[in-house]
Design a protein around this nucleic acid. Sequence first.
DNA 1: ACCGTCATGTAATCGGTTACATGATTCT
DNA 2: AGAATCATGTAACCGATTACATGACGGT
Lengths: 169, 169
Amino acid sequence: MDELRLTPTSWIVLGFVSLLGEATPYDIKRLVAQSVGQFWSFPHSQLYAEPERLAVAGYLDESREEGGRRRKRYTLTERGRDALERWRGEPTTALPEIRDLATLQLFFGGDPRALARVQLATAREHLAELESLIEPAGALDDPGPALALEYGLSVARASADFWEKLAGD
Amino acid sequence: MDELRLTPTSWIVLGFVSLLGEATPYDIKRLVAQSVGQFWSFPHSQLYAEPERLAVAGYLDESREEGGRRRKRYTLTERGRDALERWRGEPTTALPEIRDLATLQLFFGGDPRALARVQLATAREHLAELESLIEPAGALDDPGPALALEYGLSVARASADFWEKLAGD
DNA sequence: ACCGTCATGTAATCGGTTACATGATTCT
DNA sequence: AGAATCATGTAACCGATTACATGACGGT
C-alpha cells in the first residue's frame, strides 16, 4: 500500500484494466500489441510485473483463478480509478521522445543511402500494418484509440517520407 | 575488460568521444543538449556513468586531470574505434519508438481539445528551438548532424500539425 | 568576500530487459 | 499421441533515473 511513482507503463496497465473491467496480463498484452505496442514496445514480462506492483500499492485488486491456467485477474480499486481519472484530467506538457537507432547512425556518420534503403523498407511495412488497424479502431465507441492511431500514422508517414527523400538523393 | 552489451547511450558516448578526440562527460553533455537530447533525453548522471562502464570494458581510456577540477577525460581505444566503425557500417532495421505521454492520454480518453491546446504550445516552442539549430548544424563538415536534425524536424512538424488540426476540430 | 550559478560527480534505488521455464491448446 | 505453438509466469541482472552533494568560477 506504499506510495508509488506511476510510470507510463502504469498508465497503460491501469488504462486497459479500466477499459476491460477485468483483465489478465495476457489480455493486456494482446491489446498492447495492436495499439501502443505499435510505436512503443516493451517485453511481455513487464505486463506481468507491473500489475503486481500496482496491486501491492493498492491500485489494483488481484485474484487468481483456481482451475486450469490459474491466471491472475486484475480489477481497478477505487484508488486506481481515482488515479487514472486525475491523470486523464491533466493534459501533459511532456514532449514526445523519439528513440531511434537509425537517426543515431545517421548522426554519427552512417551512410545515408544505405540507411535510407533499409529504413524505408521497414518503415513501409510498418505503415501498412498501422493502416490495417484503422478500421477496427474506427469501429470502437471510444474515439481515443483511433485518434492515437492517427497520430502514430502521421509520425510514421513523416518518417517514411524522410527516408524516401533521402534514398532518392 | 568484460564483454559488454552496447546500448544507444553507449553509441552516443563513443560517437562524441570519436568526434572530439578527447572529451569529458561535461563536453558530451553540452553536445547532447544541442543534438540528440532534443528528441531523446536522459539525465546527465548517465554521461558520467556510461564512460565509466565503457572504460572498464576497454572501449575508452580514462585519465584524470591533476589540478583544478580534476576532470575525467576520455579517449577511444582501438577496441572502441573498431566497435564504432562496425556499428556505423551496419544499418539498423530497428524502427523508431515514440514514447509520448500525450498520445497515451489521448488513447485512454483524455480530452482531445485540451490536450491539443497544451501540446500545440509546447510543440511550437520545440520546433522553434530545433529550427535555431539548423544553421550551426549546416556549417559542420560532417553532414550527419544536419541530416539527423532534419529528421527530427520533420517528425516534430508532423506532430505539431497533428495537434494543430486536432485543436481546430 | 560573498553569492549564485555552472560544473562535476557519487550513491541508492527501481523499473525494464534478458533469459529461462513450464503448462495448455491446437494441429497433423 | 506427438509436435508445435501459444500462454503464462519467475528470477536475476543491469542500465537508467532520482536524489544528494560539493567544488570551481564569474560577477558585484
